[in-house]
């Protein structure tokens, strides 16, 4: 997983409240055997008309926000099911950080597992960032300092220290276990002597 320390990028404004996981990735696309390929269906109802054509000027496909790594979202973002497909889909659209007034718990947890930083700011601060994003300003998110800066404004946010550690080191659960790789291989060396028939 890519380490998260500090990013600077333009941002996509999508301040709708109560965006649920069905809006992020509709259930009919979950019947997959992969954990990739969800990006094209992400925010489908926002991006496509019923006949499959693009919704003119939607923020996710507009040139104006292309290359944005930050999503400015609304209150209670990610509510609904516990599907991990939601952060997978968001990741594939290129977002590494979501800023919102609040997040659904399970969704926020799933984001961390997938290397996405969720920043919680007050509604007023988020409103100000939406204006800045619409104006095309660059926004900087610094996880180490726990700050968001844009133009002359600076916002501080709280973040769980364990999760901060995981993101900053770029570790998912497997990555964390692999920090004990030496212990695992030395266990194997020992076991191979004791019960050699378990090895081929």
């Amino acid at each position: 997983m890519e380490k998260f320390t500090k990013i600077t990028s333009i941002a996509t404004p999508f301040p709708r409240a109560n965006v649920d996981t069905d809006i992020i990735i509709p259930a009919q696309h979950l019947k997959s055997i992969k954990r990739t390929g969800f990006g094209e269906h992400a925010f489908e109802s926002v991006r496509y008309n019923a006949d499959g054509s693009r919704v003119e000027g939607n923020v996710f496909d507009s040139k104006r926000y292309s290359g944005a790594n930050i999503l400015i979202a609304g209150d209670n973002f990610g509510c609904g099911s516990s599907r991990e497909h939601a952060p997978w889909a968001i990741n594939e659209l290129g977002y590494r950080c979501i800023i919102a007034p609040s997040f659904a718990d399970i969704f926020a947890g799933n984001c961390i597992k997938n290397g996405i930083l969720t920043v919680t700011l007050s509604q007023g601060d988020v409103d100000a960032l939406v204006v800045a994003a619409e104006a095309g300003h660059q926004i900087t998110v610094d996880l180490e300092e726990q700050t968001v800066t844009c133009e002359n404004a600076l916002y501080r946010f709280d973040f769980n220290p364990t999760h901060k550690d995981m993101l900053m080191q770029g570790l998912d659960e497997i990555g964390q276990t692999l920090t004990a790789k030496k212990a695992i291989t030395s266990f194997e060396a020992k076991q191979k002597m004791m019960t050699p028939w378990l090895y081929r």
């Binding site: 055997i33 992969k34 954990r35 990739t36 497997i174 695992i184 090895y199």
Partner: peptide, 19 residues
């Protein structure tokens, strides 16, 4: 297993012990 294998691939990891 399919999404587990896919996760491995996505993270660029290998299988620890094939045997």
């Amino acid at each position: 297993s399919p999404q587990a294998f896919d996760g491995l691939k996505a993270a660029g990891r290998d299988i620890h012990r094939r045997d």
